[in-house]
Nucleic acid binder design. Structure first.
Lengths: 336, 336
DNA sequence: TTGTAAGCGTTATCAA
DNA sequence: TTGATAACGCTTACAA
């Protein structure tokens, strides 16, 4: 029925071990044997069985990733980069759902590790900052790569952009457009990104010699609705901002929607900027000015790092920092 | 190191077979034995090893899904519904990337089947209509569930909404709002949905006694940019439509953007409707009128169907049809 | 109702 | 450089 390594060995006239060695690219195999095996593999259309390979305990060739019950744009983009990188390294990506509302990510990780024995784990915010999860993986000896970690960033491997600098640059760009009252809408407290982006905003204000008016900072949680609410609060001020920098793109769209609902023109009456630079930032009119994170490349780097750790047998991996891009598009303009 | 079925058996004072039987919920196990095993499992924190389970050839407890290199909204939503349903049935979801540009989906499926031996496959458009993929899976004896199949819909299991009726209803709703010139932007030819939605549009026009003006039908491929292009063509007509029904939400957003760019108000000057009802349809102002497909529920139904087929050992599954919802929101209004 | 034995496809270990 | 053998954790087939 299914072709196994035995079939290949039989056709090549060699033992299964020799075939196995060829399969694993080991040295100490004659070129002649290698050729015969290759021929047999092609002729038979043979593929290694992941289960048999994983059973002896060494490797499962599975990389796991926890995904929340709502998949935001950037998670989909991350997954895409990760799955492609895994594939090209001969790994498979298994996605595990978990209920982010209960906050029991560590349990989901433990369950996945016990039943699936993934060789590595990919962690995205806010799970990448969940210390119970890191402890679980450390204990199980499963290496992990973290996207944008903010607490104990030295643990495992990590991939990030300099979000403080990115937010500073964006705020500064708004200043250079002539804006002097710049509003900010923050993110949820369990995302390290929330603090970074706020910090960048504050730093830019200080650099530009602008007073930090607490009224200009509205809370949010990275959802469209809180962008709307934040915009409503900011635009309702006696002295409203002429530009609003939302902590992410979803909220920025909420700001745009609210501005337009209030009869304000974007960017005529108020400039709007976001953060992330996912696909949705291109699907509006005017197109959203935003900070683009190379999420797909970050995912590939994360997968690459974790696979490297598997090969090396380490729990410690590189901390990579990728470049962001300021995308100044039509939702921002010179201050009136 | 890791707890195995032997550890459980030892602690329970029983054989591994009895433990295995309890694990699989088989009959012919005394309550006493069952209790002891349960106790041991809990005490040891034991979890079955997926690899050992899959190796004997019976089951892998893996469900595979092919995802394109660009993950549209609805694919993310589908995945979400699928992964959750899989989890609750004790299965894991493995995502396999494939390059939709090369059109070699069947190869990706064959590779996944050979190396991963998934118990079932979930197919989304346009792969759900790829006969080479179906043939591959039939040959391998791997059951599959198809989302919105349009060719040979009886093969495998399927989940769909009545898209013809949905498009008819939406067009008809626009007619009832007083629109007499209703434009339509179509989808790519390899999506069955393209033909269905166009058919529904045409059927509604006929029912309402409206002439089918070919000028009012623009081509598209379900991407934002083609929505923009289609809108440009339609709104540039000597007698432009007062409402545009785009074949999906992405294109509808393109229509809105173009209308606004041209200085037209939505819905004041032109009403816009989409199809799919994903999250993005709520992230604009005005909010998009659209047909909502319960994609997550459809995914759950698909996963459910395929798992049922695995249990039953059939390649033939149910054809389920779920209800759509007409979401009449702010992007459409009474014709002027 | 319970247990024994064999085997799934691959790799690690050791021997040739 | 190659090969025989055991082992991985579990389930199926069969026996008690």
């Amino acid at each position: 029925m299914t072709t196994t390594i035995k079939d290949v060995a039989a056709r090549a006239g060699l033992s299964v071990m020799t075939v196995s060695r060829v399969l694993n690219g080991e040295r100490h195999v004659s070129d002649q044997a290698r050729d015969k095996v290759q021929e047999a593999i092609e002729a038979l259309g043979y593929r290694r069985n992941v289960f048999a390979r994983g059973l002896p305990g060494s490797r499962s060739f599975l990389i796991a990733m926890l995904i929340p019950e709502i998949i935001p744009d950037y998670v989909a983009e991350f997954q895409q980069g990760a799955v492609e990188q895994c594939r090209s390294a001969g790994y498979h990506l298994v996605v595990q759902p978990f209920d982010s509302r209960t906050g029991m990510a560590a349990q989901a990780v433990a369950a996945a590790v016990a039943s699936l024995r993934p060789d590595g784990f990919l962690l995205i915010p806010p799970v990448s900052d969940d210390l119970a999860v890191l402890d679980t993986l450390d204990e199980a000896g499963v290496p992990y790569a973290r996207l944008a970690p903010s607490v104990q960033p030295q643990r495992g491997a990590s991939v990030a952009v300099d979000e403080v600098e990115a937010a500073r640059a964006m705020t500064s760009a708004l200043f250079e457009l002539g804006h002097r009252r710049i509003g900010f809408i923050g993110g949820p407290p369990d995302h390290g990104a929330s603090a970074w982006r706020l910090e960048g905003y504050r730093r830019a204000l200080a650099e530009c010699g602008l007073a930090a008016d607490p009224q200009l900072i509205a809370p949010g949680d990275f959802l469209f609705a809180t962008g709307e609410a934040g915009a409503e609060a900011l635009l309702g001020l006696a002295e409203p901002p002429t530009a609003i920098f939302a902590g992410n793109d979803d909220m920025a769209l909420g700001v745009m929607a609210t501005a337009q609902r209030l009869g304000l023109s974007v960017p005529g009456d108020v400039s709007v900027a976001g953060f992330d630079g996912g696909e949705i930032s291109t699907l509006t009119w005017p197109q959203l000015t935003t900070v683009r994170q190379p999420v797909q490349a970050m995912a590939a780097a994360a997968a690459d790092a974790v696979i490297g750790m598997v090969d090396a047998g380490t729990m410690q991996g590189p901390a990579r920092r990728l470049d962001f891009t300021l995308l100044l598009r039509a939702s921002t303009a010179q201050a009136a």
